[in-house]
Computed example of a mutant assay.
Amino acid sequence: MRVLVTEDDENLLLAVTTALRGAGFAVDAAPDLPQADEALHVNTYDCAVFDRMLPAGDALDYVRRHRPPVPVLFLTARDSVTDRIAGLEHGDDYVVKPFSLEELIARVRRLCLRAVPHHPPVLHCGDLEVDTARHQARRAGVLLTLTAKEFAVLTLLVTHQGTPVPRTTLTTTAWDAQVDPGSNVLDVVIKQLRRKLHDPPMIHTLRGVGYQITPA
């Protein structure tokens, strides 16, 4: 799941992006509205997090004018009833500063899952079960120990099981930015997934295309 975070406070931006990445999200960071607007036009996100008061203006006004095609969560120190109502009318969630990073992660995950309602929270591919809500995967009932990137790649493959998933789709979804085409980071993750899934093999290489998962 990919998230855009727009916050002009460098320390808070670092804390939020670090926490979300640690929870398995791919995160893009923007310090202002112009960069956020550009990112929203170039990339596809499952959730956008906006600090309300930014150098170029109120993010709520931006969302009201442009209405990004993605669930929006506002972060703000403005906690009046009027502000809360406005945030919920024009966004999808509203978190008042200071806030718990654990709570923010839970709220972002809920919005991301809302963005793809056609995917059930628990995905199945043969004897493989991927629980996107609990961030767990099991094969034949055995819990797999996966890194955040391994879980992200596996979830995407299972979501599109039986269909080839291009390398670029996997890298742009599971990583924070486009991975260098010459990098082997995706190959390393796939190798680790194959090892952890054990036999019979489920993930297949389609040379020149990407990878595909099928029931064993």
Rank of each mutant, 00 (worst) to 15 (best):
K97V: 00
V16F: 05
Y62G: 10
F25S: 04
Q136M: 12
V108E: 02
F25I: 06
P71W: 11
L144T: 04
S183P: 08
R114T: 09
T147Q: 11
M53R: 15
A59K: 03
A59P: 07
M202T: 14
H90V: 12
A39Q: 12
V189T: 12
V130G: 05
Q192P: 00
F74M: 02
Q178Y: 04
E7T: 04
T44Y: 07
V16C: 11
T132V: 10
L33H: 07
A152G: 13
I190E: 04
F99H: 09
H204I: 15
T147C: 12
V188T: 15
R195D: 07
Q178A: 15
L154T: 05
L156P: 01
E103T: 11
H160Q: 13
E103H: 15
D93I: 02
T145I: 13
R114C: 04
T82I: 09
T18F: 07
Y62N: 05
G22F: 01
G208S: 10
E38A: 02
L75Q: 14
V108L: 02
V188L: 14
R21P: 06
P71F: 12
S80M: 02
D9I: 01
A174V: 07
V63S: 09
I105T: 05
T163V: 14
D199K: 15
E38V: 02
E103D: 15
V185N: 01
P68A: 07
L88A: 10
V63N: 02
N11E: 11
H41I: 00
A140D: 06
